[in-house]
Amino acid sequence: MEPGEPSEPTLSDKLDDDHYPAYTMGQATEILGVTAAFMRSLGTANLIEPLRSPGGHRRYSRYQLRLAARARRLVDQGTPMEAACRIITLENQLAEAMRLNAELQRRTHPSHGSPTP
């Protein structure tokens, strides 16, 4: 490896990474209590795009499992799958916009929100 090149992630890095595709389809369905068809439908609805192992098997991250769990709760409450996925997408976009707005506010007005000595 050349100096300055990123190093390979360690096992500890992978375990701490919310986006590391650590879970197989079987593990994901067992953890969430859903069917493989449900997980595939999340991909069809463009909510989750699992990574693929070298053998072509779907792999899911903890973050993706949280999205799937949220979708399951909405579907269990009677929300159609497509609508549930759209709701989750919009919730995520709103959360990101709010995060960016707060960051911009901190940069623009550094004294706001800071306690005075």
Rank of each mutant, 00 (worst) to 15 (best):
I87Y: 06
R62Y: 09
M98C: 03
P50G: 04
R99F: 10
Q93C: 09
L32M: 12
P54I: 07
I87A: 12
M98D: 08
R58F: 02
E96C: 02
A102K: 15
A45N: 11
L67V: 06
A69H: 12
A69D: 15
I88N: 01
P50L: 07
A36R: 15
A71M: 13
N92V: 00
A95D: 10
L42M: 13
A97W: 07
I31Q: 04
M39R: 05
S61K: 07
T79C: 13
E91A: 10
L74W: 02
E96Y: 07
M39C: 15
R86V: 04
Q77N: 13
G43W: 01
R99G: 03
S53N: 08
A83V: 12
C85Q: 04
P54W: 04
Q77S: 15
A95T: 11
L100C: 13
Q27H: 04
L65T: 08
R99A: 12
S41V: 05
N101P: 00
R99H: 12
I48V: 15
C85N: 05
Y63H: 14
E49P: 01
G55L: 08
L51G: 05
L67M: 13
Y60T: 09
P80K: 10
T35C: 05
P54C: 06
A28V: 05
A68C: 11
M39A: 15
E49R: 08
S61Q: 08
S53E: 08
V34T: 15
E30C: 09
S61Y: 02
S61A: 14
T79M: 14
L74P: 02
Q77F: 07
A37E: 11
A68G: 10
T29Y: 02
I88W: 00
E91I: 10
Q27D: 12
G78Y: 03
E91M: 14
I87M: 14
T35V: 10
V34I: 14
N101T: 12
A83C: 00
L100K: 13
R40S: 10
G78C: 07
L51Q: 14
Q77C: 08
L47H: 01
V34Q: 04
R66G: 12
E49H: 10
L65N: 05
A28D: 01
L94M: 13
R70K: 14
L94I: 14
E91G: 03
R40D: 06
P54T: 11
D76Q: 14
P54K: 11
M81T: 09
L90T: 06
A95F: 07
G43M: 06
G33K: 05
R72E: 10
T29I: 09
R86F: 04
T44D: 14
G56D: 10
T89S: 15
Y63P: 00
A68I: 11
R86P: 00
A36F: 05
R58N: 11
P54R: 10
D76N: 15
C85M: 06
T35D: 03
R58T: 04
L47F: 02
G78N: 07
L90P: 00
N101W: 07
V34K: 03
C85W: 01
E49F: 04
I88F: 01
R70P: 02
G33I: 11
L51N: 09
T29H: 05
Q77T: 08
